[in-house]
């Protein structure tokens, strides 16, 4: 925005800097609040969000990434009810045991990779020097596709943002159940942080 001002760039409409505190966990205090209560002051044609990021090296901008879409978050809670009892008498419907099996199945789930216009072009559009490659990163989607076809070679939870952009995710991030070591609990819960592809 400083550059726009200094260069006296003619603008068709306002350029607005918006900093809000909600982050993705409390949007009711952040962007959701702004949209619901102050949309008339914004009416943005498009937004450049922080997740797009910019890379600067040696004081010079090397790249500015722009998001064209964002995954949709669908957090869900799994609730298992079982028979309460004493730990000395194990029960077949133990809530934590059954929930653990369900969470394990979700954790091992391999949803298919699906590309949109942006992810299809990402590897070829990104300047090679924009960001140093991470040890586990694979930026070639054709390689990722081949890995997808060969379940024996793909790493389930590879720390690869490129791969994450092309697949829905569902990591189990919360798990709760029980209150005493010798008591079989009647309930157990787990929360999945499902991130679905935008289309």
């Amino acid at each position: 925005m400083l550059t726009l001002k200094r260069l006296n760039v003619p603008l068709d409409r306002d350029v607005i800097f918006l900093a809000e505190s909600g982050e993705e966990g409390q949007v009711e205090w952040g962007i959701q609040y702004m949209v619901e209560n102050h949309w008339s002051e914004i009416q943005a044609e498009f937004a450049i969000a922080e997740a797009g990021n910019a890379v600067r090296k040696g004081g010079k901008e090397r790249s500015v990434n722009v998001m064209t879409a964002e995954k949709s978050a669908y957090p869900v809670q799994l609730l298992v009810k079982g028979t309460a009892g004493h730990g000395s008498v194990p029960l077949p419907d133990n809530a934590i045991g059954r929930l653990s099996q369900a969470v394990a199945r979700v954790y091992q789930w391999q949803p298919p990779m699906r590309l949109n216009d942006t992810t299809e072009r990402t590897s070829s559009a990104s300047p090679p020097s924009a960001r140093p490659p991470k040890p586990h990163a694979t930026t070639d989607f054709s390689t990722l596709r081949n890995q997808q076809k060969s379940r024996s070679t793909i790493r389930l939870h590879e720390p690869n943002p490129q791969l994450h952009a092309a697949k829905p995710l569902s990591p189990p991030n919360m798990f709760a159940g029980g209150y005493r070591v010798n008591v079989i609990p009647s309930t157990a819960t787990a929360t999945l942080d499902i991130r679905a592809l935008p289309d």
């Binding site: 949007v27 959701q32 869900v76 059954r98 929930l99 369900a102 199945r105 499902i194």
Partner: peptide
């Protein structure tokens, strides 16, 4: 959700949407 249900493969497990990204409407207002 149907796909998740299929993966979980246990009909006794309840799946509840928490949905912190839902826009507030008359239907889900507190």
């Amino acid at each position: 959700m149907a796909e998740l249900r299929k993966v979980i493969n246990d009909p006794s497990i309840e799946i509840k949407a928490r949905g912190f990204y839902r826009p507030k409407t008359a239907a889900n207002a507190d």
